[in-house]
């Protein structure tokens, strides 16, 4: 049973980026997801150089304006331009999610591949620790961590990142274990290569696809988690705008200014939806067998 499963998840031959891109253009999820993700990333990058107004430019005379020609998405209760805040908020969301995924990959992948390479009690111990972290409700623990070490974007990254570690460890271990059974790894061992050598030269390039797909999924979960923490006041702190914080502020004014609650929410949904579609598309492209099952 486990052999069958391993065979199914064992990565196929690695392909060049060009071949993947060519296949990608025929995949609807990939094209739509990549387009949306690029727009969101572009928005975040542009915000470093230009926003329609300064994101913290308070202009009380212009407060709570509905969308108009000057302020495309309206203004908030301090007269700040909502579009500018959303653009800078994209920067925060993406930054937190990227670092959180980085923490997961940086610790989880070495741990998972090490467990697969060594087996025995090391594997057993690492996997039990993994199960244990999984048993903790992630949101609850993230709230606890940010509350203990103080609210802020950096602590939010760490809190979200910690829960990415077991995810990547599990994916890396599962895929690596399957590869360790294959002939070309056996050949490498016969040639005298050690476990570290084999992992870096043969295992990692072959599990890269799976890691990219998982990374995309964790990226979108990270954006949702950052928004949730910021909504509770535990994530990105003012005056830096963040989508979650904007929604928390909008809540008290929803009866008089519903537009304040709509646009930051749409921004979150767009970013998450784009990444999820991108992840689905990438999975189909990398592993056509899964697509048939779908």
């Amino acid at each position: 049973m486990s052999e069958i499963f391993a065979e199914q998840t064992a990565p196929t031959e690695p392909e060049g980026p060009l071949a993947i891109l060519k296949k990608g253009l025929h995949n609807r999820s990939f094209v739509i997801g990549a387009a949306i993700t690029l727009v969101v990333i572009a928005m975040a990058l542009i915000s470093f150089f230009w926003t329609p107004y300064p994101f913290d430019g308070i202009e009380i005379a212009n407060r709570l304006k509905t969308p108009n020609a000057d302020h495309w998405l309206g203004t908030d209760h301090f007269g700040r331009d909502v579009l500018s805040m959303i653009m800078v908020g994209a920067r925060n969301s993406i930054g937190v999610a990227i670092i959180a995924v980085g923490i997961g990959i940086g610790i989880g992948v070495p741990a998972g591949t090490w467990a697969a390479a060594r087996g025995g009690w090391i594997d057993e111990t690492l996997m039990r620790v993994n199960d244990f972290v999984f048993a903790f409700p992630a949101l609850l623990s993230a709230v606890m961590i940010t509350a203990i070490f103080g609210p802020g974007a950096v602590n939010a990254m760490i809190a979200i990142g910690i829960f990415n570690i077991p995810v990547f460890a599990r994916v890396a271990r599962g895929a690596a274990l399957a590869l360790w059974q294959r002939e070309f790894i056996l050949a490498a061992r016969v040639a005298g290569k050690g476990p570290v050598h084999i992992t870096v030269e043969h295992i990692l390039p072959n599990i890269l696809n799976l890691l990219i797909v998982q990374g995309t999924i964790q990226f979108s979960l990270g954006i949702l988690a950052e928004a949730g923490l910021s909504y509770l006041g535990l994530g990105t702190q003012p005056p830096n705008p963040s989508w979650g914080k904007m929604l928390a502020e909008a809540q008290t004014m929803i009866a008089i200014a519903p537009h304040l609650a709509i646009f930051p929410g749409l921004a979150i949904v767009t970013a998450v939806l784009g990444l999820n579609l991108l992840g689905d598309g990438l999975r189909d492209i990398f592993d056509p067998r899964l697509r048939r099952l779908k």
Partner: peptide, 22 residues
């Protein structure tokens, strides 16, 4: 369902309040 997964539940909650309560 793609949309349902992408919507943060607290935002959905706000929209529900706006629609059905306010």
């Amino acid at each position: 369902t793609q949309l349902g997964i992408a919507i943060p539940n607290f935002w959905f909650a706000l929209l529900l309040v706006w629609m059905f309560a306010i």
